[in-house]
Design a protein around this nucleic acid. Structure first.
Lengths: 221, 221
DNA sequence: CGAAACATTGACACGCTTCAACAGTGGTGG
DNA sequence: CCACCACTGTTGAAGCGTGTCAATGTTTCG
């Protein structure tokens, strides 16, 4: 598991920046506990959240290949992260398991961000809000969180809105609509899913892009 | 150079699908010539373009780490692509130069798609159209195309609109606006840049995310 | 307790989509 | 060779989804 990559653990209080856009080359991190966020700021003060990395996710893998970081990384709750030495990534090949784990993580991140792109480009506010909720639910389930009727979620409406490319005000209205349709209720620290099936139908949600590759019969080669 | 990765070259006529979303595990490709496109389709017929891979770009690197492809890959013009054997990617570590090149390509792709996410989430239609034009110009310049006053560009307004999350109709109006502001003219096969500086100012365009890492003094480690 | 962050609601404006119509262009087959 | 068709581009009018501005309630936390 990737969570075993980091020998050191660093405790990070809530709402602290771990690295910032345009920072010089530096380490990658594995999130060990807590909720975090990667985002880009615009000159006009706008903010676009790229993803909410959860425990087990690697952040900043590509910082080592670019001149500087392309986004900021911040804790949303109290969290723990483990720095991954640059050398381990550049020489990951000598540890095939590590190399495989890193490739899988990178592939999954790319798939998530691509899905977010589809979300912003081609889905209505209602549908993409539903989609993000379901994606988050599926990711939590993958790391062992019980999500049958919902899940604890520390995200404020501002953060969710910044991930969905909406204003917080409009997101609030969208959440009301989802609540009044008895699909899902998003409250301070908790998301309650009332009707998973109808929610998934609304969001046209397919979780396949989050799943690890099949361990079954290998393809031809 | 990555363009030397592929021993075989495959000619592909315009508007041909090279691989499709949900296809089983298969090879990655290096684009050798021509314009191509990666996109995802929605059940309602909507289409979101993720990127327009150009010569030198690697496509489908992550297909090998996921159960199936997450997007479709198609030629927009007559093109040439070189398949990269799966084995070469999985054992890239034994060829440090190849491993480094692949990491760099993956990092750049991630940076481009993240920038597209910001584009869709937080910029107006006018600004993000300008941004895409400038990004394309910068990428062409990197591969040796002369772009001082513009560049040849086979993209139809439909394709551009599907990359920007707009309708083709609205994109048409946006292009008219850019033309009437004497910033840039987008025509059938050619983009003419009238005033690069004002266009870059409008788009708040910073090309740093496209640049290779500095070869200068290394950071501390 | 007080302050700051977060959530909620209303009214209004505007950007983008939708629907509809038509022109230009290139390719194809009769 | 030309008529036709599919695709692309262009324009107008109207509707609606989302943003903006403003105000108030609510929760959290020092």
């Amino acid at each position: 598991m990737l969570t075993s990559l980091g020998a050191r653990r660093r405790r990070v209080p809530a709402h602290q920046t771990i690295f910032r856009e345009h920072d010089q080359k530096h380490e990658a991190y594995v999130v060990q506990s807590g909720w975090t966020c990667i985002y880009k700021m615009l000159p006009d003060g706008g903010r676009q959240v790229l993803n909410f990395p959860l425990p087990g996710d690697i952040v900043g893998l590509y910082n080592i290949s670019l001149a500087g970081s392309q986004f900021s990384f911040e804790s949303l709750t109290d969290a723990e992260v483990s720095p991954i030495p640059l050398a381990m990534i550049e020489q990951a090949s000598t540890f095939p398991n590590v190399a495989q784990a890193i490739r899988w993580s990178a592939a999954r991140d790319a798939a998530i961000i691509a899905e977010h792109l589809v979300n912003l480009g081609r889905r209505s506010a209602l549908v993409r809000t539903a989609h993000l909720i379901l994606e988050t639910s599926a990711r939590l389930e993958q790391i062992g969180v019980e999500t049958v009727d919902g899940f604890d979620c520390p995200l404020s409406q501002s953060w969710i809105a910044d991930a969905l490319g909406l204003t917080a005000i409009h997101l609030n209205r969208v959440l009301r609509e989802l609540r009044e349709a008895e699909l899902v209720t998003v409250r301070v620290g908790h998301v309650t899913v009332h009707d998973y099936d109808r929610l998934a139908e609304l969001a046209v949600f397919e979780a396949d892009y989050l799943e690890p590759p099949q361990r079954g019969p290998r393809s031809n080669h």
